[in-house]
Write a protein that binds this DNA or RNA. Structure first.
Lengths: 353, 353
DNA sequence: TTGTAGGCGTTATCAA
DNA sequence: TTGATAACGCCTACAA
């Protein structure tokens, strides 16, 4: 068991000072060719690597990014992480992941844990509970402490920071327009309660698309799901709710679902009701998932490009971090924040004509 | 912008020494009630939190766990992370995630990055490329440096460390036995090339189950997929391969797929060929995914309980970490490592009778 | 009851 | 060309 070597140990072995070793390893011109080689050889032999923690303490930066997301067992969030990790890694950053589990308390606790020096900045998507309570003090606090935050997907106007979002309204309109073009007359929407910002925006897009085509929205065609964590019970409930939708209105010939689970579940229920897809009923869902691609019938979706979102968020954060370095204490106060919008696009599969 | 306060600053403000502040905050009896309250009040006011990095450096432990997995965009791995994160968090640990992307080089680089003081121990699942090259020096090296590793799912006998695995052979036998019980006579297997340990083991289970029932394996019923990263091309290739399987052998009435993607794809191709599921063809797949539950028909699967695996791995690692603390330098050399086996179970859905 | 000093591993500055 | 020293933020043994 060869424990990690430190500069100190190398110094002792070679009978030179610590600073000589340090300089030699960093190819300083101050050091003679001779000792440099000696030191480097020894270091290589013992596989010396500078201790990250010590460096972090010294440099007052950790080169790691903290991610806080509601859950990881969701293709969209995994994709985002993949994207973040890619650019982070490329730029020499690590990524530390914490899950809020949609809970306000866990979000707060995790932020505090990480904010105490473990990371240089946050990339996060807000927990549902937080959105519901509209308590954002933990965000403002960390920002005030000088730690930058980049929010993605579930963002909130109250907080001034960089953001990466999807054109939810526009994406929803694309979906609904497609259905209208394809001849649907009675288009239902399956969405979330309004406190989930993306659900609200997608609902808005749905309404705007209808309006653009002079179609009056009907409340019997709008289903707002109380979105709890995924559980078997919840799934049953979801199916029941969708069944109610079909019972309430037997003219439905198009469905826009704000996520792919709603989409595939709608397809399942619809087929149980004898609807032919896409002949009698067409479906488009918002999604970045694996479900819509592999389900039968495969679902046409509005792809939100989770990985791109992640990449974009990481770039924004790192840009800001490196900026801070440069402008040694530019206490400008009124900083300018960016909001990057990632374009969605419609992927046509079997659930539309 | 109120930057984070340090002990030093508090000390200066209150005109006491740093150690007095430190002790006061930790409720030391050495400190007078008076100053203690004064210090604590001030600390609370300025929202003092000890700096993690400084603590890590001092204590020579970071209280964070490094996870290295091939990819995160796979339900199984997400589940494992969820499990790890749960127990880690409960025990005051953070979780830092790195992705190998199935590449040997990235695995090595990421390990080195994290091993330099950033974490206390690893939980990992080996990249395919590493398994192929059978080069495990980076594992032995980090273990030799005194950093514990827990491997899960894709493990390897050559490395002595704690492991968490699934009873792959037994699970596969459960699946195939079920098919046999249900009357299947010609059961095909869709599996990976043998260098993927879990694929190999599941294939072995398949063969053993057949043997138990005195059924001779037929090479025309065994399809070994060259498993690349998921891409559209790869998917087409997969469908082609499966089509070949059906062409080669028109008596197939049961399929055991070693993962759910193979399972749903087989179902898709089979239905294109006019097979009724489960009447004419029954399918069971290994899985921990969302696909099999929501596909049509939903797939019967051998559930591998990814979250439990994660929890178990985290418990093993943390146990070992805390052990190290106690036994101040017990250089015993021949340590004893555990291998925890997580039981699988068969979930019956629509793809079996 | 309070303060001083040393150390965790590095690097940077300045002195030798 | 090399080395001593201080600093990053914290804790603790020991001294006052």
């Amino acid at each position: 068991m060869r424990k990690k070597v430190t500069l100190k140990q190398i110094a002792k072995e070679l009978d030179v000072s610590i600073s000589t070793v340090s300089k030699a390893l960093r190819d300083s011109i101050e050091i003679s060719e001779d000792t440099r080689q000696k030191v480097q050889a020894f270091a290589k032999l013992y596989n010396y690597r500078p201790n990250n923690i010590a460096l972090s303490l010294k440099n007052r930066k950790t080169k790691t990014i903290g991610i806080i997301i509601p859950e990881i067992v969701q293709h969209f969030f995994s994709k985002v992480i993949t994207g973040i990790e890619m650019v982070a890694n490329r730029k020499g950053y690590n990524v530390i992941v914490a899950l809020s589990n949609e809970s306000f308390d866990k979000e707060v606790i995790n932020m505090q844990m990480l904010a105490n020096g473990s990371i240089d900045g946050f990339i996060l998507s807000i927990a549902k509970e937080t959105l519901q309570q509209q308590d954002y003090h933990h965000f403002t606090e960390t920002i005030n402490q000088g730690m930058p935050i980049v929010m993605f997907d579930r963002v909130v106007n109250e907080i001034k920071c960089d953001k990466v979002i999807v054109d939810d309204v526009k994406g929803a309109k694309k979906a609904v327009n497609k259905l209208i073009e394809n001849g649907c007359k009675n288009i239902a929407i399956i969405t979330t309660k309004d406190y989930v910002s993306v659900g609200k925006l997608r609902t808005q897009g749905y309404l705007e698309a209808l309006d653009d085509h002079k179609i009056n929205p009907e409340s019997s065609l709008i289903l707002k799901i109380e979105d709890k964590l995924l559980s078997e019970d919840h799934l049953d409930q979801l199916e029941n709710d969708i069944e109610q939708l079909f019972k309430q209105n037997d003219k439905i010939d198009g469905i826009f679902a704000v996520n792919e689970l709603y989409g595939v579940t709608a397809a399942k229920v619809a087929r149980r009701y004898g609807y032919e897809i896409p002949e009698a009923l067409q479906i488009v869902s918002f999604s970045d998932g694996v479900l819509s691609r592999h389900s039968t019938p495969s679902l046409s979706t509005i792809s939100q490009h989770g990985q791109k979102i992640g990449e974009s968020a990481a770039e924004l954060l790192i840009k800001r971090l490196e900026m801070e370095d440069e402008e040694d204490f530019n206490e400008d106060e009124d900083e300018i924040f960016e909001t990057v919008v990632i374009e969605t696009n419609l992927i046509e599969r079997e659930s539309t004509k």
